[in-house]
Design a protein around this nucleic acid. Structure first.
Lengths: 184, 184
DNA sequence: CTAGCTTTGTACCGATCGGTACAGAGATGA
DNA sequence: TCATCTCTGTACCGATCGGTACAAAGCTAG
């Protein structure tokens, strides 16, 4: 007996590695160790439901581990620093791709438009909130938050493309100090 | 009678929109208006050859319109500014996705690893060269160039995800002024 | 006009796609 | 022990995949 939740990490990896279109049921079956019967028992909606569940779990993880601390934790400077730690770990120093980013670039964006939009919108909003609490102006916080999230996504692309995980770590370090020195 | 070169823009759009795996011959056939017979006559190697040709053309375009000016044009500040103009136009203010970035995130990265690596490596190197000529230190130029290219890629992801093309334009403007004020 | 070439549409190939049907295995409660 | 319900492996569905074969169509040289 296997629960939905137990399969989500394996599912997420398949979607990350192969994208939504490329994640065939054969791959999913191999990754989870479950036959089609079990898969469709757990996810009657098929691939679409699997992807939606994975996105929901990712969103929940980020909400708990990033967004909420950014909004509520004190001091905000510490929350921002913790965010960078969490990001570094979550993306395995750039070796792991951002599934939401992958979906945003593909055609499947339309299928999961709301989830994809929400993920990034909340990230930017939560980070902007922390920056504001740290003394930045309203506009400056929003702009800097956007910049930081974009830089993280770009660093994933670039470090993958150059096959150079150190680039990701380096980019995060640079961002860290930029945010710190910009702090009023 | 159709030449390979004439089909490349349509091919590129299909790969951009659907990724390598998602670009089926049916889609390619519809986008180019060519039947399978013609496609395999022009590209005996099939999809792989089509994608390779598209990548080669992209690479050539960037070499001509971005990398070479960055390396050779004087003054370097103008070359950098021109690069931002070219990027803004090429990516249609964030509405158009970067095919090389898409490939870098997917499994197809392995198929085109060298092309993907070269594209970004040359971009970063050319930009770093211009920054150095503009008076930045060796290390600072390399770091800033990396940061700028990553930020561009991230801005594409973010502006697509939020369905907000203005974000891309805004990010480029910010980068512009950052590069200018950092200039020594 | 015809012979010979290039270009193209179409039919077809085996493989795989996402999804369904269903029988049987495994657990569960009485 | 037996009936019941949850779970799972397998066979199968039509559709589509990338790719091939090939004949007809269009062009060009003589």
């Amino acid at each position: 007996m296997t629960t939905r939740i137990e399969t989500l990490p394996a599912l997420a990896e398949v979607f990350r590695e192969h994208g939504y279109a490329g994640a065939s049921l054969a791959l999913i079956s191999a990754a989870t160790g479950l036959g089609k019967g079990s898969l469709y028992h757990l996810f009657p909606g098929g691939k679409a439901e699997m992807a939606a569940c994975v996105l929901a779990e990712i969103d929940a993880w980020f909400e708990t581990n990033l967004y909420r601390p950014l909004r509520e934790q004190d001091p905000p400077e510490q929350a921002v620093s913790d965010m960078f730690d969490a990001v570094e770990g979550y993306f395995r120093s750039g070796r792991r791709v951002c599934l939401v980013g992958v979906l945003a670039l593909g055609t499947s964006r339309d299928l999961f438009a709301e989830a994809v939009r929400g993920y990034f919108a909340r990230w930017v909003a939560a980070l902007a909130d922390a920056l504001r609490r740290a003394g930045h102006g309203e506009a400056a916080s929003a702009a800097l938050a956007e910049e930081v999230v974009a830089q993280i996504q770009g660093a994933i692309v670039l470090s993958r493309a150059l096959d150079e995980p150190a680039l990701f770590t380096r980019a995060l370090a640079t961002l860290r100090s930029r945010v710190a020195t910009a702090a009023g």
